[in-house]
Structures are given as structure tokens and as C-alpha cells.
């Protein structure tokens, strides 16, 4: 949290089941419209969303302060 974590979701594989949002104690993921929106500033790296996700589409990038620092592939998955 505090800018050192980026959450990426492979939206192409996401089944919009809101499993992640259901288990996140911090409100760092939420379904808005037809897409899961992430709030990395609320994320604490607890990993619950990753374990709950049935489609295996969530990745946590640690030590990443800015979107520019993500690998190119991951930047498409915010």
C-alpha cells in the first residue's frame, strides 16, 4: 500500500464474479460497470483476492510505485 503495490487483472480472463471484491477486507477491488476496478492505495498485499479468484487473473506487483514501472504486458491489465 501507499504506492508500493500495483494490482493488475487480466480482464480478458476475468469472469466478473466479484469473488475478489467479496473477500477483500480493504475495498481495494470493486466491480464498477462491467469491469473490476482496483484501488492499489487500499491494498495491503494480504493475497486473499488471488486465492479466491477462480480464474487466476490477479497479480500483485510489489515495489512498483508507478504504472510506468510495470512490465509492458502488465500495463495492459490495470
Amino acid at each position: 500500500m501507499q504506492g508500493d503495490l500495483m494490482i493488475t487483472i487480466d480482464h480478458a480472463g476475468c469472469v466478473i464474479c466479484v469473488g475478489c471484491a467479496s473477500v477483500c477486507p480493504f475495498g481495494a477491488v470493486e466491480l464498477i460497470g462491467t469491469r473490476i476496478k482496483t484501488y492499489p492505495e487500499k491494498c495491503t498485499d494480504c493475497g486473499l483476492c488471488i486465492k479466491a479468484c477462480p480464474a487466476n487473473v490477479i497479480t500483485l506487483h510489489k515495489g512498483v510505485k508507478d504504472v510506468k514501472d510495470l512490465p509492458a504486458e502488465a500495463r495492459k491489465k490495470l
Binding site: V18, G19, S22, V23, C24, P25, G27, L48, K51, A52
Partner: peptide, 17 residues
């Protein structure tokens, strides 16, 4: 499952694994 508003109202809707 998401129950955001209920959560804001103080109900313990967050699910554990």
C-alpha cells in the same frame, strides 16, 4: 456476494476464504 452498502452500514459482509 459483494454487499458494499451493507458493509458501509456496519454489517460484517466481508467473506473469509
Amino acid at each position: 456476494m459483494e454487499a458494499h452498502i451493507a458493509r458501509k452500514a456496519g454489517f460484517k459482509t466481508v467473506h473469509n476464504l
